[in-house]
Design a protein around this nucleic acid. Structure first.
Lengths: 151, 151
DNA sequence: ATTATATAGTTCGATATCGTACTTAATTGA
DNA sequence: TCAATTAAGTACGATATCGAACTATATAAT
C-alpha cells in the first residue's frame, strides 16, 4: 500500500482521537462527581436508540467487552438510573430500561454543556461542522458495518 | 442557544466518539499482549513532535492527569521503550526519550495496521478522507487552543 | 429425548485511570 | 535573604476496564 494512503488514514484517526479526548474532557468536567463518560454514554444511547436492549446489545454498540458493560450497568442501577429486568425471550439475558431519573440525568448533562457549545460554536464559525458531521456519519456507518472483518 | 446548534455539535461529537472507539479497537487488536493505546500513543507522540519532553508536556498534550502519565511512562520504561533522564533545566522535572526499541515498536505497530487501512480505504473510497481530515485538523487546533476556557 | 455446543451474563484477578495528598525544587515578593 | 507560593513528579487508595474462567440457559445434532 502506498505511503500517502497510510498517512492520510493515520492522520485522520489521530485527529479523531484528539478531538474525542478534548470533547470527553469537556463533557466529563460537567458531570457530577463519580459520573463518567461511560455512564452518560449508556444513558444517551438508550434514549437515542430506545431502551429495553440487552447488555450484549449495548456492549456491542460501544465495542467494549461485555464484562465492562456489566460493571457500568451495575453502577447505573445502583444510582437508579437504569432498571434491569429479566428478558422474557431468553432466560440467560436481561433487558435494560432507563428510569425517569436516568432521563433527567442525561438531559441535565446535555444542558450542562450549553456554555461549552456556545463558546465552541463561536470559535468554530468558519467551519461547516454539520457537513463534516454528515461525512463522519457516512464513514462511521461503513466502519461499523465492517467492524468484524479482519485480515 | 438554539436547538439546532446544540444538536449539530452533539451529533458531531457523538460521531467523533464512535469512530474513535472503532479505530482504537482496531489498533489495539494489532498491538502485542499487554500493550494498550495509551502506550502506543505516547511513543507515537514522541516521534511526531520530538522527544526530550517532560512528563507534564505529554500529559497536557493528551489532556490526561499527570498521575496517569506517570504510570504510563513507568510501563514504557520497564519495557525499555523510553528512557527517563533528569531535566537539566529543572531539578523537579524529567525528560522523556524514546529508545531505539521504542521506535521499532511504534513503526511495527503502524505497519501492523496496513491490512486494516487497506480494507478501509477500499470501503471508504467514496469519501474524501483527506479533506475531512483537514477540516478536523482546523477544528482540533481551535479546540486545543481554547481548552482551558470555561463558563 | 439426550447429549454436545454455543451464548448471556457474572465472578475474579490484573492492570489502567484518576483524584487527593505529599515531597521536592523553583519562583515570587516582601 | 528568606518566607510564601507555585509547580513537577510520585505515592496511595478508589474505581474502571479488561481477559479468562465459570454458571445457567438456549440451540443444534443425533
Amino acid at each position: 500500500m502506498d505511503d500517502k494512503t497510510r498517512s492520510t488514514y493515520f492522520t485522520f484517526f489521530n485527529e479523531i482521537g484528539i478531538i474525542s479526548q478534548l470533547s470527553r474532557t469537556i463533557l466529563e468536567s460537567r458531570l457530577p462527581d463519580g459520573m463518567l463518560i461511560s455512564h452518560f454514554s449508556v444513558l444517551n444511547h438508550l434514549m437515542r436508540v430506545g431502551d429495553g436492549r440487552t447488555p450484549q446489545d449495548i456492549s456491542r454498540a460501544f465495542q467494549v467487552p461485555k464484562t465492562s458493560m456489566t460493571h457500568t450497568l451495575a453502577v447505573l442501577e445502583k444510582h437508579n438510573l437504569v432498571e434491569m429486568k429479566p428478558n422474557p425471550k431468553d432466560g440467560r439475558s436481561k433487558n435494560v430500561w432507563i428510569t425517569a431519573k436516568g432521563r433527567e440525568f442525561r438531559d441535565h448533562a446535555i444542558a450542562g454543556m450549553d456554555p461549552d457549545i456556545e463558546r465552541l460554536s463561536g470559535l468554530l464559525a468558519e467551519f461547516d461542522v454539520a457537513t463534516v458531521s454528515e461525512q463522519l456519519a457516512g464513514i462511521r456507518k461503513i466502519m461499523d458495518a465492517s467492524r468484524d472483518e479482519k485480515d
